[in-house]
Amino acid sequence: MSGLRILVPVKRVIDYAVKPRVNRAQTSVETANVKHSMNPFDELSIEEAVRLREKKTTPVEEIVAFSAGPPKAQDILRTAMAMGADRGIHVVVEEKDSLEPLGVAKLLRKVVDEQKSNLVILGKQSIDDDAAQTGQMLAGLLNWPQATQASKVTIEDQTVTVVREVDGGVETLKAKLPMIITTDLRLNEPRYASLPNIMKAKKKKLDKKTLGDYGLDSEIRLKTVKVTEPPTRQAGVKVDDVDGMISKLKELGAL
């Protein structure tokens, strides 16, 4: 019986609590001097990988954190390692060449082969592009089973049971390793990295690579025509009591 070799891709995104602003040229969202952090769903992926190791139902041989992004993405790889990943791989991709989900999936396929991973845990979506595609694309390229929007993962021997969030409730799926899982918010509560662990993470191995090392380039299929602010809503009225609310709603045709 072989153990789990888990790959956890993480993405550096604008912090979830920051309200993004569209730049003047309407070409993108302003990212300079804006607080960035690990995509919240990716924190859940790391946490789940570490919990699988702690549960010991199937031995975890290794947890590798991976990111493709600008030089600063190494900060979130250090965070991942402080949370419990054993080492990191950073494919340095400048912001102007940033990859689309299909490009990331193609890159991850190569990394999975190279690292001999048998379980990839990804976030269900990144909170910047909101695409929700990479995990499924990777599963397709590898022809592996997939369980998206996982809220509970159990692994016994080589069998993975996943409870996933679907419209109207949950469903349970079962498959054999190797497998792709994407995480939903309900899956776990990510731990905070302690100071000693942050110090230890600085000594963990972090490999720097380029797209060229994997024989890929940043081919872009979707051209951004423009990025605009969403229409703003007109400020409404405050009413004094319930009667006021009912009559205002009637006036607006909502009742």
Binding site: E100, P101, L102, A105, D130, A131, A132, Q133, T134, G135, Q136, M137, L138, A139, G140, L141, Q146, T148, Q149, E165, V166, D167, R221, L222
Partner: peptide, 23 residues
């Protein structure tokens, strides 16, 4: 862009070598 569509279409897109457009 439902649970069904979100789960399925990126896999289809990858098999066809297409960058999907979501939602």
């Amino acid at each position: 862009h439902s649970a069904f569509g979100k789960n399925l279409m990126p896999r289809v897109a990858a098999l066809l070598d297409v960058q999907q457009i979501s939602d």
